[in-house]
Design a binder for these strands. Structure first.
Lengths: 156, 156
DNA sequence: GTGTGGAAATTGAGCGCTCAACCACCTAGG
DNA sequence: CCTAGGTGGTTGAGCGCTCAATTTCCACAC
């Protein structure tokens, strides 16, 4: 009863799997080399920097950075050691914690961003035609919508 | 001088990033739940099963499963503990090691495959039109060809 | 032979992630 | 009140991966 993949589908799946894996590996390596920061941490700094106060409740930050709460806790602990994020207790909910981007954190992000964007351009956009870029966007959104809990779409 | 992403490009990049990450996370979770095996291990078993002798030199296996040698060493060590793979010394090169899929390993793979394929279908193919599937294949191959060392394309 | 440079594979430390357990606190029902 | 269940967040163990050695062996030069 298994709906096996035919030859064409196998090629599609394999190509997608390899391309994604290798592209993200490259980006991760670039970022690690240039900034000593894994992409997940970069993501966190980006999310914080996008808010007016450069601060977010842990749970909100977890949602926006597509991270589990556990992962975020560990990550923010590391980022705090580096001095890039500070934890503050939340006034209206004593269980809550607020993660705030420090000036050093913002500076680290500002230094990392151009290098990372250049990587993304080289690995993802330059190899694709304008039409393929459109296709990639539409198709990715279709994949997102099919997930159990389709997340809201936004930007980097 | 940074070639920043415009709004459209940011949406594309974000969608691709999220979709890939979330889809692969789902697949990983499905596989882990159904078989107790991470996808990287599944990949190794698949590669071995595809050869006539169900055996490969470590380096060849590393190439085909897009793994570093170090990662493969660790992984095969684990798979050997599970009794799914056996290491043999290589007759014509005393440095070499041959990884051979055991009958238990083949059985584990045979049990895992239908579940995994169903996951892939649900998460990747079902949400896409036939046209989008074609686009995904072509576009993924374009990304692969743009990588430093474009790997040969094949199937799952 | 005897080195010498490189390839095959392994190892161990360090790190990030997952999963399950846990603590602190909020909130609704009685 | 107060207590039962749920939410916010953290913690620790276990695991897989990376990176930089390290070891063993091949292959080629002299």
């Amino acid at each position: 009863m298994t709906r096996w993949l035919d030859t064409q589908e196998q090629q599609t799946w394999r190509a997608f799997l390899s391309a994604s894996k290798l592209v993200f590996d490259e980006l991760e390596r670039d970022l690690q080399r240039d900034t000593g920061m894994p992409h997940a941490y970069y993501e966190i700094l980006v999310r914080l920097s996008e808010t007016p106060e450069r601060a977010l409740r842990m749970s909100a930050l977890a949602d926006r950075s597509q991270s589990s709460r556990s992962r975020l806790s560990h990550a923010v602990a590391r980022l705090e050691e580096k001095g890039w994020v500070r934890r503050e207790s939340c006034p209206e909910d004593k269980r809550g914690q607020i993660a705030r981007l420090t000036d050093e954190g913002f500076a680290a992000l500002a230094a990392a961003a151009p290098l990372h964007v250049e990587s993304v351009r080289t690995r993802v956009f330059d190899p694709l035609t304008a039409e393929q870029q459109d296709q990639l966007r539409v198709l990715s959104q279709a994949l997102l919508n099919a997930l159990p809990h389709p997340p809201p779409t936004d930007d980097d």
